[in-house]
């Protein structure tokens, strides 16, 4: 089977998985379903010849499932039935999104077809990477050398996110008692 068929199979599987994850009433099943979708992304990366990403996606998937389960599972959780207002909102949203989807067909026709990217910039990396950076992994050399500034930004994003999460979790505010009184 060609790669494309496999990919259609995997992405279709992911579509079903994500709908299941959103619609399931049970929280643990939903988290597991979205975990499976993430592993599907990892598989798709592998098929699309991106092993770096497959590894990172796989690991981050494990990591985020662990923290989501750890954070949420022991809460006394009740899922609620869908209300009336919700159904109206849902209907409007679905119609709008279907319209966007149909419009997007024109866009994807105008883009280069699957399997034939333009490669004008990328060709330079493929040809010159080994001689210029002496790194065998071209993705690594782009991430850390040609576009190292992006990675500095990425490291900062992670630092900000972690600092932010710690601030949100462990902040002992002077106003805390007052806030508690209100809730």
């Amino acid at each position: 089977m060609p790669v494309e068929t496999w990919l259609i199979f995997i992405v279709g599987f992911m579509l079903i998985g994500s709908i299941a994850a959103l619609e399931m009433k049970d929280l643990l099943s939903a988290i597991i379903a979205v975990g499976i979708v993430g592993l599907g992304v990892s598989m798709a990366f592998l098929l699309l010849q991106a092993p770096d990403l497959a590894i990172v996606q796989f690991l981050f998937e494990i990591f985020s499932v662990v923290i989501i389960v750890r954070a949420f599972l022991k809460k006394d959780y009740h899922s609620e039935g869908e209300g009336q207002r919700n159904r109206l909102l849902g209907g409007i949203t679905v119609l709008t999104l279907i319209a966007v989807f149909l419009l997007s067909i024109r866009l994807f026709k105008a883009l280069p077809p699957f399997g034939k990217p333009l490669m004008t910039t990328a060709r330079y990396y493929l040809e010159n990477c080994a001689s210029q950076t002496h790194a065998a992994n071209i993705v690594s050399s782009i991430v850390l050398d040609y576009r190292g500034y992006d990675t500095l930004g990425e490291v900062t994003v992670l630092f900000t996110a972690i600092l932010g999460a710690l601030t949100i979790i462990r902040l002992k505010s002077k106003r805390k008692t007052e806030g508690e009184g209100q809730s």
Binding site: R70, A71, T133, S140, L144, D145, L166
Partner: peptide
Amino acid sequence: SSGNILVLNIIIGVKVAMGLFVVVWSLA
């Protein structure tokens, strides 16, 4: 080999490992 890339990889590795562990620890 590959100059900066290896050095930066080590720096990032340490940073990511420490940062993520601290987050999980605080959540726990």
